[in-house]
Amino acid sequence: MRNSRQGGQVRDLLPGTEPVRFVNEDGSPAARPEGYAEPPADRLREAYRRMVLGRRFDTQATALTRQGRLAVYPSAAGQEACQIGAVLALRDDDWLFPTYRDSMALVARGLDPVDLMALLRGTWHAGYDPHRTHTAPQCTPLATQTLHAVGLADAIRRRGEDRVVMAFIGDGGTSEGDFHEALNFAAVFHAPVVFFVQNNRFAISVPLEKQTAAEALAYKGIGYGIPSEQADGNDLVAVLSVLDHAVAHARGGHGPFLVEAHTYRIDAHTNADDATRYRDAAEVERWRAADPLARLEKYLGLTGQDIEADKAAAEEFAARFRAGMNDEPEVDPLELFAHVYAEPTRQLVAQRETLRAELAAQEA
């Protein structure tokens, strides 16, 4: 394995020259990658079920945005293998630090989709309890969550707990200073954290080749003394196998690990974006043909009955999601000031009272 630092000597921190792959784009088995084990069939079957549910959730959330039920929604269509593979590589008591695009992963983790949408409805910062779910609030500023993740991972290490932290990040986020600071801190303090880069080729409209001159984003680990690997991000088997290895590395006391998954964002950045201005339709169709669900269906030899049963369960889930979103949340504008400081400043008190007076005047 190219994964460890033993006796102070670096064996090999570099990722493989090609992304790890178990399943070809047509669903046939690829040449078995050296050093990685295929996950058991029951885990792969469960992964497929959650991918179907995740895709249905994603399309439903997109539809709700068009209906005005959400202010914005960043789709993860095409990234299902990354989203679900990451969740399945973690235990329930491990911590996850997601970005704004990772709602699908949180649904796969068992969080209530209506609660998840509080951020995108603009009703609350996070509609779920981070402590109970071991899931940090979804982070909109690029890469800031990576430093939060490392801080928590370092606390876990200091307490001697048998847990790990996984920080999601997009390719654009790797250009932020916070990401590099997080890598350095994690390596120096030997924090049990996995950095999972979902390289979907575009930082909004900026293509990967204009973001970095590195051969792959996984190579960014070497400068900090962090072992890294690349995986075919549309191959669920590869994603899960590589992340299993990375999580075991961190849990075993060997410090951080960096994984880059090569995938693609099929839809626009958000509903407010026009991706046709910077992406070629033929490119999108090429990636659509590498559909992670279709690949896994064929690889597992699923029958039409199996597939329809999973789709039916996903439809029931979507119906419950729609029904929950029909309930209008009760919003108190004064909550804006509730959790800014433990002891509100004079300026904050003044602002709160100004808003209180304005609201009272509107009701009069």
Rank of each mutant, 00 (worst) to 15 (best):
N3R: 15
Q9V: 15
R11P: 13
L13H: 12
G16H: 13
P19T: 09
P19K: 08
V23A: 08
E25D: 15
S28M: 11
R32L: 15
E34D: 14
G35Y: 03
A41S: 12
Y48I: 08
V52Q: 05
L53K: 12
R56W: 09
D58M: 06
A77E: 13
C82E: 10
V87Y: 07
V87G: 07
D92N: 13
R101P: 08
R101T: 04
S103R: 13
M104D: 06
M104L: 13
A105F: 03
V114P: 01
D115W: 08
L116Y: 01
L119I: 04
R121S: 00
T123N: 05
H125A: 13
H125S: 11
A126S: 07
Y128C: 01
D129Q: 02
R132L: 10
T133W: 09
T140V: 12
L152K: 04
R159H: 06
G160C: 00
E161T: 00
E161M: 01
D162F: 00
V165Y: 00
M166A: 02
M166E: 00
G172S: 00
S175A: 04
S175C: 03
F179M: 03
A182V: 02
A186T: 00
A187Q: 04
A187M: 03
V188H: 00
F189C: 11
V193S: 04
F195W: 04
Q198V: 10
Q198D: 07
N200R: 06
S205N: 11
L208V: 13
E209P: 13
K210A: 14
T212D: 07
E215A: 15
A216C: 14
L217S: 09
A218C: 10
P227I: 05
S228Q: 08
D232M: 08
G233C: 06
D235I: 02
D235E: 03
D235Q: 01
L236R: 09
V242E: 02
H245N: 12
V247D: 00
A248M: 02
A250V: 03
R251G: 01
E260A: 02
E260N: 03
H262Y: 10
H262T: 09
D267I: 09
A268Y: 05
R277W: 07
R279Y: 06
D280E: 11
A281W: 10
A282L: 11
E283L: 12
E283H: 11
R288V: 09
A290P: 09
D291F: 05
D291Y: 06
R295G: 10
L296T: 07
Y299H: 10
G301D: 01
T303C: 07
G304S: 05
Q305N: 13
A314E: 01
R320K: 13
F321D: 04
R322E: 14
M325A: 08
E328Q: 14
F337D: 05
A338N: 13
A342L: 14
Q347T: 14
E353G: 11
E353S: 12
E353Q: 14
T354N: 14
T354V: 15
L359V: 01
L359R: 08
A360Y: 09
E363C: 07
A364R: 14
